[in-house]
Every structure is written in C-alpha cells, then in structure tokens.
C-alpha cells in the first residue's frame, strides 16, 4: 500500500505526465487548474488499485487520460479540428518555433488521437499503448501512422502558406 509520503514522491518524480495531459486537454486557466486538481485527486483515490509489478508512469497515464477524457470543461473550446486556413493561422504562428506548432497541431487533433500520439511520442510501444487505451495493437499501428501523416500534412500546409 502506498502511503502519503510515497505518493507525493512518486507524483513529483513523474509530474511531467500530469502537466502534459493537462496542457493538451484543457484550454483556459480555470479548466487547467480544475483538471490538474481532479487528476491529482483521482490518482490518490485510485492508487490503491496500483499493482507494484506495473510501472507507476503507465498507471499515472491511465488515470490522467481517463480523467482528461471524462472531464467536463467549464469553458467551451473553439473547435478547430483541422488547420485548414494557413493564412488565418500564419498571424499567430509566424513567430512560433516548430515545437510550438507541433503543440498546436496536436491540440487540434480529436481527443482520442491526442492521447495515442502523446503516448507514442513519449516512447510507449504500440503494444503498451494498446494496453493503456484498450484498443487493439493493429488499430494503434494504423492510428499512429495516420496521425503522423496528418501532423506532417498540417506542417507542410503551414510551410506552404508562408511561401
């Protein structure tokens, strides 16, 4: 059984996961704060289900993503599912670094795609992603391929918009 001190230590060692999920799933300051607190609370409540033979980061991801996908946003997000209009975006992204554009592109993906690509970029193998999400490994393979294609396509579109 994990006690309070051990829990705090484990969270502090892996707090990147929470920041990442919160950053990618909440938009306003208020929503970020709520999602952040709710994630910590649910991690604490669910830690009794954690089996030590598994990795704590995987457990953390499962809980954080579960909370994020079930989270009720207070603010209604302005839906921009695709970066269709490169000119419209150019004003806001012209002075941005590539990694910032990547961040915006991932944030514009649908929530389940956002989850899969985040896990993939964090180094999880497809079989592990399948274990975390509940999808089949084949499905994960195809999805990752498509999401990467989509991201590359959006980047090219933005690049093309400048030329």
């Amino acid at each position: 059984m994990i006690d309070e001190n051990e829990f705090v230590k484990l969270i502090q060692e892996n707090d990147r996961i929470i920041h990442k999920v919160v950053g990618l799933y909440a938009d306003t300051k208020e929503d970020k704060k709520d999602l952040y607190q709710e994630t910590l609370l649910q991690l604490w409540k669910s830690v009794k289900n954690f089996r030590r033979e598994a990795s704590f980061t995987t457990f953390m991801y499962k809980v954080a993503l579960n909370v994020a996908l079930s989270f009720n946003k207070k603010s209604k997000r302005i839906q921009t599912t695709t970066l269709d209009n490169a000119n419209e975006l150019s004003a806001s992204i012209s002075d941005k670094e590539d990694y910032e554009i990547l961040y915006l592109t991932i944030k514009n993906l649908i929530e389940t795609d956002r989850m899969i690509i985040t896990l993939h970029l964090d180094g999880y193998k497809n079989i592990e992603i399948a274990e975390i999400t509940g999808m089949t490994t084949n499905n994960v393979n195809v999805k990752i391929h498509r999401i990467k294609e989509k991201i590359t396509h959006e980047f090219k579109k933005i690049d093309h918009g400048y030329q």
Partner: peptide, 28 residues
Amino acid sequence: WQKLEQANFNQTIKKEEIMKAIQLESTS
C-alpha cells in the same frame, strides 16, 4: 516533442499543491 517537453512541461509540483488537491471534493 522533446523540445516541447523541455519548454512546456517542465514544472515541479509542490508537496503542498498535491496535499491540497487530494483533500478537495471531486468535480467529476
């Protein structure tokens, strides 16, 4: 992605923040 991690997700959660959060009521 690695650059993004360094720039955006590199804060440390303080113990007080964790303790405060786990004592709150859930909003789910």
